[in-house]
């Protein structure tokens, strides 16, 4: 078992009810899981908790048996540049870096940059001709491919993706998702993907639906 989310709750200060209420979820290596739900169901929060981006108020999360709650800021940061990588809806590339620099960025932060692997990823993602371009000159699909490449260059054990195709048209989104699934399968990583699209959820190996902070 790679990821173990155990009865986790999250209450935002001043909120009436918890955004997550004793949620438990398990994910094995090589598994791809779609997390669906209405707006405000807490699926993004759950993803952020899994990525050690945010604190939870009760329960525990473990990655490969390592519990999150004892970790300090530095420990959580180390997690994010080691076994966990993220892909966002808005791509969130570093606008001041070129495509090639962005691709290598996360891996270099994590101290596990493999130029050959990164170059391979660039080719696989169709970015081989664009190494010196800046993100703002790229199309949305191209930008998200850079973001996926940046994440995969780290060779993460767990890839977290938050509506990765939400800003893309259907055809482009499908192509990007294909590439992502291929790469996840190739590296043996697990994928936790937040989406509100049934069509996309159907392409993953398992799905979990979140309603008002609860898994039904």
């Amino acid at each position: 078992m790679l990821l173990d989310i155990d009865k986790v709750s999250r209450i935002y200060p001043g909120a009436e009810r918890p955004v997550l209420n004793h949620v438990s979820l398990r994910l094995d290596a090589c598994e791809t899981l779609a997390l669906t739900g209405e707006s405000g169901s807490g699926k993004s929060t759950l993803l952020h908790l899994a990525g050690a981006l945010d604190h939870f108020d009760a329960g525990e999360i473990r990655l490969d048996g390592q519990a999150y709650s004892p970790l300090d800021d530095a420990g959580r940061a180390a997690l994010r540049r080691g076994p966990v990588a993220l892909v966002f809806q808005q791509f969130n590339l570093v606008p001041s870096l070129t495509v090639a620099q962005n691709l290598a960025f996360h891996a270099r932060l994590g101290g596990r940059h493999d130029p050959a692997w990164t170059a391979h990823l660039a080719e696989r993602l169709g970015l081989g001709a664009l190494p010196d371009r800046y993100p703002e000159t790229l199309s949305g699909g191209q930008q998200q491919r850079v973001a996926i490449g940046r994440a995969m260059a780290l060779r993460p054990r767990l890839l977290l993706a938050d509506e990765p195709t939400g800003n893309l048209d259907e055809a482009t989104g499908d192509a990007v998702l294909d590439l992502m699934l291929e790469l996840v399968a190739e590296t043996g990583a697990a994928l936790l993907l937040v989406t509100h699209s049934e069509r996309i959820a159907a392409r993953l190996s398992r799905r979990v639906h979140l309603t008002k902070g609860d898994i039904r």
Binding site: G51, L53, D73, A74, A77, A78, L79, R80, R81, G82, A85, L86, F88, N92, L93, V94, F105, H106, L109, G110, R150
Partner: peptide, 9 residues
Amino acid sequence: APVWAMGMT
């Protein structure tokens, strides 16, 4: 934010 998300404290 992305740099932080990628593990810089």
